[in-house]
Write a protein that binds this DNA or RNA. Structure first.
Length: 271
DNA sequence: CCCGATTCCTGTAGGC
DNA sequence: TGCCTACAGGAATCGG
């Protein structure tokens, strides 16, 4: 499940291969993603050079001479750069052929992703304009999170997964950050001190930075752009470890759904 | 306005 | 072995 570290890993893997390359043509086998790919997409991209690749939240932006290609990997998407003659597999939905003989191929079994061309600035783009802060930016601070949360009785896990507050934190890293900060995932947001918010903000930054270093987390569908898995999977403390011993206190980890999402935590360490 | 529930989708796992 | 169902989850949308 691509969250911020997986998307950033993808961005870094694509940079060398795509920047300064020119798009020859686009070939789409299935337009039906989270929203259908616009019928003008191919024409908008053709003969454009990729200037740079940026990440905003869990979105990638391939900056072109004019406008940009916006890509979201959804639940199960990944991108690879391969020779264009590489045989296509099922769920390979979009190919962006480069003039150098390579092609960027988008693969997404569950089709929750997004691919579109746009020239709107982020402040005006419907998918980008309401996004909250980047968690690795300096302005994402204990003060900020405390102020956002102090009037809310929501479970803290739902708050840090809310992209209108802070972006890029999905179900895996929310659970990992709460474990590191020793905060119970169901604790009400307005019942956490500013000091503990500092622990939580630190934990979110640490876990995301460590995961980026390891090339992300691979469960089922995510791979780095060179086809290797992400290695943060081995560093997970709680995600997917229901019933296994807590790495701090050895008591078995609990799994309780919060907002219909699996949530694994240690009842003893997290308060 | 706020926020939980529902929805999209398909591969996989578990039950019988 | 094979069929069936439940489940995973990002984020838009719905509705109380």
């Amino acid at each position: 499940m691509p969250e911020l570290p997986e998307v950033e890993t993808t961005r870094r893997g694509l940079l060398n291969k795509l920047v300064k390359q020119t798009i020859d043509r686009v070939d789409i086998t299935n337009r039906r993603l989270r929203k259908p790919i616009d019928r003008h997409f191919e024409r908008r991209c053709q003969n454009q050079t990729i200037i740079n690749i940026e990440r905003e939240a869990k979105y990638l932006k391939l900056l072109l001479d004019k406008g940009y290609i916006l890509i979201h990997l959804g639940m199960s998407g990944h991108l690879r750069v391969i020779p264009k003659e590489t045989e296509r597999r099922s769920h390979d939905h979009v190919e962006i052929h480069l003039k150098n003989g390579l092609c960027l191929r988008y693969h997404d079994p569950r089709r929750f992703g997004v691919i579109e061309w746009s020239d709107l600035p982020s402040t005006k783009h419907p998918l980008l304009k309401h996004l909250g802060l980047e968690p690795l930016s300096d302005i994402f601070s204990a003060d900020y999170l405390y102020n956002k949360a102090k009037k809310s009785t929501r479970a803290i896990k739902n708050v840090i997964m809310d992209a209108k507050i802070v972006v890029g934190v999905g179900n895996i890293y929310a659970q990992e950050a709460l474990f590191l900060a020793a905060i119970h995932p169901k604790r009400k947001a307005n019942q956490i001190s500013i000091k503990r918010y500092q622990d939580l903000v630190n934990a979110i930054k640490t876990v995301l930075q460590q995961a980026i270093k390891q090339g992300g987390t691979s469960l089922k569908d995510f791979y780095q752009t060179d086809g290797k898995p992400g290695y943060f999977t081995q560093a997970l403390n709680v995600y997917g470890r229901t019933g296994e011993p807590c790495k701090k206190c050895q008591k078995p980890l609990i799994n309780q759904p919060i907002a219909n999402r699996q949530t694994v935590y240690c009842q003893h360490c997290q308060r």
